[in-house]
Simulated assay, not measured.
Amino acid sequence: MDLILWRHAEAEPGDVGLPDLQRALTSKGIKQAKRMGQWLDSQLPENCRILASPAVRTVQTAEGLGRKYKTHAALVPGAEAEAVLQAANWPAGKETVVIVGHQPTLGQVAALLLTGQVLDWEMKKASAWWFVQRDPEEPVLLKAVMSADLVVK
């Protein structure tokens, strides 16, 4: 199974008086989402499943991919790493899954996949981490880490 963790792009600060789930992307964030979305679209198989947190900023980030996606309540800010893996059906799923979510949860999922422990690893805004596990007897592999800043325009 392939699992891509995609952190939402740059969003409005949390102190602007909006409820957290209503915070939108900044103009820079919209550009980041489109750049990373174009890169992901060129790499992903046609039949992948895309799940996003219901927060406005993650929905806007997912829209940068230009594919159909579904929001999933288990991906809200502050979600448990295990809940994210369950939503993705990791590692039993057969299809590639893209999760568009939040820190610190996505960093914790990455750490859990690679170390077996929930640790607070940092993921840069708009970055994507691509994990692969073909055989449950084999270790999880980190296939790629890509930042929106590295995508060629």
Rank of each mutant, 00 (worst) to 15 (best):
R7M: 01
H8W: 05
E10K: 14
A11D: 09
P13G: 12
P13T: 14
D15I: 08
L18F: 06
L18C: 02
L21K: 00
R23N: 04
R23I: 10
R23E: 06
L25Y: 09
S27R: 15
S27F: 07
I30E: 15
I30A: 15
M36V: 02
W39I: 07
S42L: 13
Q43K: 14
Q43L: 06
P45Y: 07
C48G: 03
R49S: 09
L51Y: 09
S53C: 01
P54C: 03
V59L: 01
V59C: 08
G64L: 07
H72E: 08
V76D: 00
G78S: 10
A79T: 01
E80P: 00
E80A: 10
A83E: 13
V84N: 04
L85P: 11
N89K: 13
A92Y: 05
E95R: 15
G101E: 02
P104V: 09
L112C: 06
L113Y: 13
L113N: 11
Q117K: 15
V118D: 00
V118M: 00
V118F: 03
D120G: 15
D120L: 14
E122S: 13
E122N: 13
E122A: 14
M123G: 01
S127D: 02
W129V: 05
F131C: 08
Q133W: 09
R134A: 11
R134C: 04
V140C: 10
L142Y: 04
V145M: 09
M146I: 08
S147L: 07
A148D: 12
D149C: 02
D149W: 01
V152R: 11
K153C: 12
